[in-house]
Design a protein around this nucleic acid. Structure first.
Lengths: 152, 152
DNA sequence: CAGCCGTACCGAAAATATTCAGATTATGGA
DNA sequence: TCCATAATCTGAATATTTTCGGTACGGCTG
């Protein structure tokens, strides 16, 4: 299936604000409400739109520290990689986990209350995983830009 | 203002799925629809909920490559930092930009169609900024976990 | 070229959800 | 205890979402 210009516009709008009513969307796209509704439904059904979520103010909810941890594993066997991924996925502090090309194995984006909480997480949750060899962490001083919208 | 248990539950739910109706939420929280509505409205008004957005399937919309670029600047004066942040914020490929504590200055999360597109972006957009000294990029092999929800 | 199919579209009706206006019930001091 | 405040509820109004029947416009084929 191919997206036309209207679909792209629609996705662009919904990436910025998913709370727009079909009426507002229909106005932006010069289509009827029903047409817009049908398109959104289809984009969801076909998986272009995976979900819609609320974005919170992290400071307001007590998340004071974002850190990026580069993780080196002890081995790169299928099983070790799998097991590590499975364990890491369970940690709510780990918001993102990427396997990387290059010198280290994984990069994690970790959200904690503060440095103490990160320390505890590292010592008692992450570093104790048997697959982990070393962890190198960089801390975020400030978030200049933080988008969920992909360019399109 | 302090969040009570209901608020926290509510935020947790909306972080996972902001398309839930007030009716569905009221069922989960054992409150009336109006009570839930009032709470959501307040959480938005007070800025706990910044926005609600659609999360797309990046592969389906042609974003084949995610990369993390570590940027070293030529200087760390207020002006240089500011100018760099301002310019970078304009690039739609740069979804996130963090100023970092530690050895490098900024980390960018960059979304492009493929390696060619990244290359062009680097050469013609990023590396030509006068504030930039060097750029070191790591490429994502796979996204094991990708959450927008903060732990709470 | 006519007929047919599939797709996208529209307007209007039906089903849901949101919003609002009191009335009622906790909650937390004085 | 009593008051003031905030939170909640019910039920009605308003608005939005969803569905549905029908239309227009391709492309395809006999």
């Amino acid at each position: 299936m191919e997206l036309d210009e209207i679909d792209v516009k629609l996705l662009r709008l919904l990436q910025q604000d998913a709370s727009m009513s079909n009426k507002a969307l229909s106005f932006e796209l010069n289509k009827s409400i029903a047409a817009v509704h049908e398109r959104v439904r289809k984009l969801k059904r076909l998986g272009y739109i995976k979900k819609t979520v609320a974005i919170l103010d992290r400071h307001k909810i007590g998340i004071g520290l974002i850190s990026f941890s580069q993780v080196f594993l002890k081995a790169h066997t299928f099983e070790v990689l799998n097991e590590f991924e499975k364990e890491v996925a369970k940690f709510p502090e780990v918001m993102e986990c990427y396997q990387m090309a290059g010198s280290y194995d994984f990069m994690l984006r970790i959200a904690t209350k503060d440095m103490d909480a990160y320390h505890i997480f590292l010592r008692h949750r992450l570093a104790v995983l048997p697959q982990v060899n070393t962890v190198q962490t960089y801390f975020v001083l400030s978030e200049t830009k933080s988008e969920t919208a992909y360019p399109l």
